[in-house]
Amino acid sequence: MIYLELFWEFFKTGLFSVGGGLATIPFLYDIGRRYDWLDTSIIPDMIAISESTPGPIGINMATYTGYTAAGILGALIASIGVILPSVIIVLLISRFLVSFSQDKRVLNTMYGLRPASLGLISAAAFTLLNVSVITYDAFVESGNILDIINIKALVLFVCLLVIRLFFRKIHPILFIVFAGVIGVIFKF
């Protein structure tokens, strides 16, 4: 039952992703490994679309996955699944609000969660590099060592990275549009 699977998987994603929208990416790859209704090769495109459209990235990803997996109803169910843990937990916390953010146990748990969540996001970034700049599969196929890195992509990657590091105020959409145009011009 795909609707139940969508709901349950995104409920877990909402419950365990700590530290903002990007934290949902490792969960998406995990879902893609286990179900055939999520093709992991579309995840980078989904991130691009989520970053260039309004709204929380986590919800955007859930809606997109739900739609590609099971149409409009799938989009709705996945989105509700991903926001429900937030709503339940926050309503529970709100009742005992006073002490929550100063509670030592909460602070300690968050102290451990943050680096681990970041480790998961980094692993997802590694996968992203693996489908864009590093072309390991092409290397395996041809046996030619030069095929392991997509030179055009590497040049673009380094340029974007440097620009992003030094000009923080440029909006991510501009990077995405620029890279898209470069992709078309140089036939990536």
């Binding site: 980078p44 495109d45 991130i47 691009a48 970053e51 970034a125 992203l128 590099l129 489908v131 864009s132 700049v133 992509a153 673009l156 990657f157 974007l160 990275l161 992003r164 991510p172 990077f175 995405i176 620029f178 890279a179 898209g180 145009v181 470069i182 992709g183 078309v184 140089f186 990536f188």
Partner: peptide, 9 residues
């Protein structure tokens, strides 16, 4: 091309 930008971002 966009995938490269996403990785950088």
């Amino acid at each position: 091309g966009i995938r490269v930008a996403v990785a950088a971002l």
